[in-house]
Design a protein around this nucleic acid. Structure first.
Lengths: 190, 190, 190, 190
DNA sequence: TATGAATGAGGTTTCATTCAT
DNA sequence: TATGAATGAAACCTCATTCAT
């Protein structure tokens, strides 16, 4: 039941927004009553916190696997991170949109936990870049922190417009992004 | 008075979100009454629509000036667009955040007008890229539409974290972004 | 202007009801502003009172002419009263409906003036009947007061359903009513 | 609770009118809160609709009993219908007044259901008259539809003035109305 | 004679939450 | 484990009215 509530909530939060979705909406869609909701969650905010934590914890786990793989270059690790963020849209498009949009509705204490984990995720990207700079894979003059932000923005923004069933697949998008990021836009042929 | 209401609303919408900001909050902050608000706006949604239109219309005007300048290269035009988006944070950080976050609260008809203008802004970026490809400034294999999305994501995302008074200035950020975008991350020296 | 306000108000009160019609509705329909309204009327209630008084005073004047005509029988006087009430629908359908529906919104003091005049109108009908009984035109066992109520109900109720442009004309309706009233429903032929 | 809300509402609607009675008024009189009201009714309009349907459905049921009785003449059936309408004032005076006054506040769709049922009630009266004409009880030249309207007007109007505890009882009123209706006002003795 | 800005009280409705069962 | 009745605070919005100009 708890799981069903979470799933239904994500669906509705994504479609109508957190504030615009009432507990009533959620339980009605499930055919249960409000009492049931409060049996499993102590508040609407707690539900949102759970969703956020589930999501970021998942991301961090997957990121860890990418980073800890001893056989891949930093370039590949970065590539896989981008792919992770972009290809996950198919799987996690809905929770992702909720994740990016509704953080402001968390209470300060929940928000701070979540923010810390998001920061960690970003910092891991930054470290990949820094490591790549050290090994000479990447240019020395990159500002790793800013580039990490740039990559995150690029990828996360795609949740605003990207549809996995459109003319561009998620893999193609990830590749196009990486190609631009790695080699730049400038024409060096002429 | 109408202008004061708009300004105060932007302030509060940015701080607490559209749904969480009540008309009461707005008018109380201004020392007037709810009646006054409804004298100038027919609904809360209309106020949000006005804010959105003001913002995107401003952006489009500034973009036009960049594009129509006959003396600049496409590379420069792109650079100026990034600078426009990023440096405007100082000036329009608040309305920008409202702009990016709260579009879902517009009624379908208002939303469609705004979306069309946002699409136009993005399409103009895409055209700069395409023109740059044609003149040989940019690589031939760029997918202009995806790159336009990438640039927008990169810049717009910075509203989530960038503070103009931090250790990095807006101009530095714009330059770092452009540098990465134009020349890529890969080290070509070694 | 004052007259235009009254006319427009009657139109709207009839269509939407007194409470549901706002001063805003009235002045908007006239292309003026609320200030104008309050220049001519001290309150919404006063406007309604004026409408009521105009209407009942008109009726009383016409009734007087019927009653004071020395050449008509009481039967004719009654007939003309019915005709007065019914045929006036064409002319005064709208104000009449307002008149019958919205009296509860008058303040006690206004209401009492209007009620007194309405009572007078009814009492005049009752007197016609009583006089007709005395002259032998009408049956001796009629309860004049109740019959007066019956006639008023019959006629006034027609404002709820009668359309002067329908298959029955107002004159035909008046005649059918009088025929039933005077001669009854019972078949005396068989 | 739902029943108590309905009863209290009828009381207040009759006394002050539908628009002038607020939900607050109703729940305050019952010592509950507004939330309670909206637990049982989805809107103020729905409450009014319920009241209307209850009332007209009751009337139709009673009318059916009158019509379907095989032992009574049409004259008696008509008489009983008038008695039904008039004597019900004692029982249903309040809901009746609400019923007759406040139909304009129903939404079009609710109104149309109620109107249909009211039309049926009237049409049943008309059929009694038509049947009575066929059997020779009533005069052949009656216009059954207009007479039905006349009777309804006569009876319903009495809700505007009749008090069951006054000098005339409801039974006397019904009888006086029927006497006038059946035998007419004209004096046939002289 | 008319305007337009402002008020303030009140209206309907929504909703997260509680709690006895 | 779940229900359903009830709460109460707050939301958006309407509107008759006032008043300086």
């Amino acid at each position: 039941m708890k799981k069903r509530i979470v799933e239904q909530s994500i669906l509705l939060f994504e479609r109508k927004g957190f504030s615009e979705t009432s507990i009533q909406d959620v339980v009605e869609a499930l055919g249960v009553t409000k009492g049931t909701f409060y049996y499993y969650f102590s508040s609407k905010e707690q539900l949102l916190r759970d969703i956020h934590l589930m999501y970021i914890d998942d991301l961090l786990t997957l990121q860890e696997q990418i980073i800890e793989n001893p056989e891949t270059s930093y370039r590949t690790k970065l590539s896989e991170t981008v792919k992770l963020l972009v290809t996950q849209i198919k799987v996690t498009g809905r929770p992702a949109r909720v994740f990016h949009r509704e953080m402001m509705h968390l209470k300060p204490e929940s928000a701070s936990t979540v923010k810390q984990k998001r920061r960690l995720f970003r910092f891991n990207i930054q470290k990949i870049i820094e490591s790549g700079v050290e090994t000479g894979e990447f240019r020395k003059d990159l500002q790793a922190d800013l580039v990490a932000f740039a990559i995150l923005g690029m990828c996360n923004w795609s949740y605003n417009w990207f549809h996995p069933n459109g003319s561009v697949t998620d893999e193609e998008l990830a590749e196009a992004y990486m190609e631009t990021l790695l080699n730049g836009m400038v024409n060096r042929d002429g």
